[in-house]
Design a protein around this nucleic acid. Structure first.
Lengths: 241, 241
DNA sequence: ACAAACTGCGATCATTGTTCGCAGTTTCTG
DNA sequence: CAGAAACTGCGAACAATGATCGCAGTTTGT
C-alpha cells in the first residue's frame, strides 16, 4: 500500500506478523544474477520468484513494482564500486571514479538498460555522488558547475561504455539490429550522397589505441573542458531561440 | 518475412497485390501524434491502428515489429531539424547543431525514451551525422576523434535535455518517482553522513542563468575539451586495470 | 485471550506484441 | 485472357507479463 515513498524510505519490515522468508537484498541478488546471465529482460517477476523458490505474488510483499526491483538491483551493483583514496588532484580522482563506473558497467552490462532513462537514487548511487563531489570539493568553481560536471561525466561514461559493450559483443551474439544498422550505414556510405560520412567510413584504420587509453583521453578532455577555469564562459554568440 | 534487414533497406511496397491503404509515414505520423500527446508508452500497436482506422494486425504489413515503428518515429522527428549554413567556425556550427537537437527533443520529449538505449539509424539521423561531420571537416584532428566528439555531443545533449524536461514538467504531472527521489535526497542530505552532498544541497541558490546559456556553456566546454588540440592526449597516469 | 497486522501465494485479470489463416485484389506470365 | 503468384486488410487467437484479490495461517502487541 505504501508505495508513494521511495523504497529506501520505507521500512524493510514491520513488527507484526510472521518473519518474512526473504528480504529485499535476496530479491535484488536474484535479479542481478538473472540479468547478468540473460539480460535485464530476463528479470521477470516470475523468473525472480522461481529463482527464490517463491510464488510470483509473494514478491509484492517486498517491492511495490518491478521498477523498484530494478532500483534495488542498480543500487546493489553500485555497491561494488571501490573508492580509492583521494589524491587531491581532482582530475585524476574523477577519472578513477569514472573507471570504477566503467568497471561495474562492464561487469553488469544491463546497467546500461536499467539506467538509460534515469538513474535511481539509492544508498550506493548517492555514495557515488558524494565521492564525486568530494573529489572536486577543493575546486574554485560554483557548486552548480560541479553538479553539472558530475552529471555530464556519468552520461559520457555511459555512452562510452555502451559503445564498448556493443563492440565487445562482436565475438558472439551479435544483436540483429546491429547487423541491420551496419548494413544500412554501408549502403548510405556507398550511395555517394554523404561525402563526409563516406570519408569517415573509409578512414576506419585500426588505431590500436587501447580502450583504456581512449576512455581516459575522452573523460579527461570532457572534464578539462568543463571544470578548468580557462573558458570565458561566453558561448560566442549571444543570440538564441 | 524479410525482417532481417533494416527497414530502410526494405522496399516500401512490392509490385503485386492491391494498393496498400496506408504507408510507413502514416504509421509514423500516427505514432508521433500519440507520443507527443501521451508519451511513448501510449504508442501501442492497437492505439496506432485505431488512430489510423485499421486493425491491429494490419500494421504488420508495413513494419515487422513495434521497434521498427519507433525507428520510423525517431527518424521522422529528426527530419524536423533545420540545418543552418556552416559558418566555418566549427565550434559555433556544432553548437548550432546541438541546439537544433535540443529543440526537436523538447518538441518531442519521447525521443529521450526512444533513443535511450540506442539511436536508430535512418535517413534523417544519418543526415544529422553527415552535417556534424561536415562541421568539423576542416579540423586537423584524426577522424576517430571527430566521431567520438559527435557521439559524446549527442550523449551530452540528451543528458542536458533530459534534466531540462524533468524540471520543466514541474508545472504539472510531476512523475511520482521524481517526488520520491527528491524526498529521499532530502532525507540523505539531512542525515549528516554526506557532507559534500548536503553542502551542494544547501547551495541551491537561484542562479538565474538562462537554460539557453547553460546549455551553450556546457556544450562548448565539452567540445573544446575534446577537439581543441591543446591537450597532451596523455591521461596522466599510464597504469590501469 | 483476542484483535491487529502481517506472510505466502493460488487464482485470476488486463494489457501487450505478435502470429495465423482466410477472403479478396492486383499484377505478372505464358 | 486465364491462372498462378503475391500481395492486402484483418478477425481471432496466443503467449507472456505485471499486477491484484482474497484466503488461510502466523506472529505481535495489549
Amino acid at each position: 500500500m505504501a508505495a508513494a515513498d521511495s523504497i529506501w524510505l520505507r521500512p524493510e519490515r514491520a513488527s507484526r506478523g510472521p518473519a518474512p522468508g526473504y528480504d529485499r537484498d535476496a530479491l535484488a541478488a536474484a535479479g542481478v544474477a538473472l540479468a547478468d546471465a540473460q539480460g535485464l529482460a530476463a528479470v521477470t517477476m516470475r523468473a525472480v520468484a522461481d529463482a527464490l523458490g517463491a510464488g510470483p505474488a509473494s514478491l509484492y510483499r517486498y517491492i511495490a513494482t518491478r521498477e523498484e526491483l530494478v532500483e534495488l538491483m542498480v543500487d546493489r551493483a553500485h555497491a561494488e564500486i571501490r573508492y580509492p583514496e583521494l589524491t587531491g588532484a581532482w582530475l585524476d580522482d574523477l577519472l578513477a571514479l569514472a573507471r570504477e563506473s566503467r568497471r561495474i558497467t562492464l561487469a553488469h552490462t544491463w546497467l546500461l538498460d536499467a539506467t538509460a532513462t534515469r538513474t535511481p537514487l539509492g544508498p550506493s548511487t548517492v555514495a557515488f555522488l558524494e565521492h564525486a563531489l568530494g573529489a572536486v570539493a577543493g575546486l574554485d568553481v560554483p557548486t552548480r558547475d560541479k553538479l553539472e560536471a558530475v552529471a555530464v561525466l556519468s552520461a559520457v561514461v555511459s555512452a562510452l561504455t555502451r559503445t564498448e559493450v556493443a563492440q565487445a559483443r562482436g565475438g558472439r551474439t551479435i544483436p540483429e539490429w546491429q547487423r541491420a544498422q551496419a548494413a544500412y550505414l554501408t549502403h548510405v556510405a556507398a550511395e555517394g550522397r554523404h561525402p563526409h560520412l563516406a570519408a569517415a567510413f573509409a578512414d576506419q584504420g585500426q588505431d590500436s589505441e587501447s580502450v583504456d587509453r581512449l576512455f581516459a583521453r575522452i573523460v579527461t578532455g570532457v572534464l578539462r573542458g568543463l571544470l578548468r577555469p580557462d573558458g570565458t564562459g561566453d558561448p560566442g554568440d549571444g543570440a538564441n531561440a
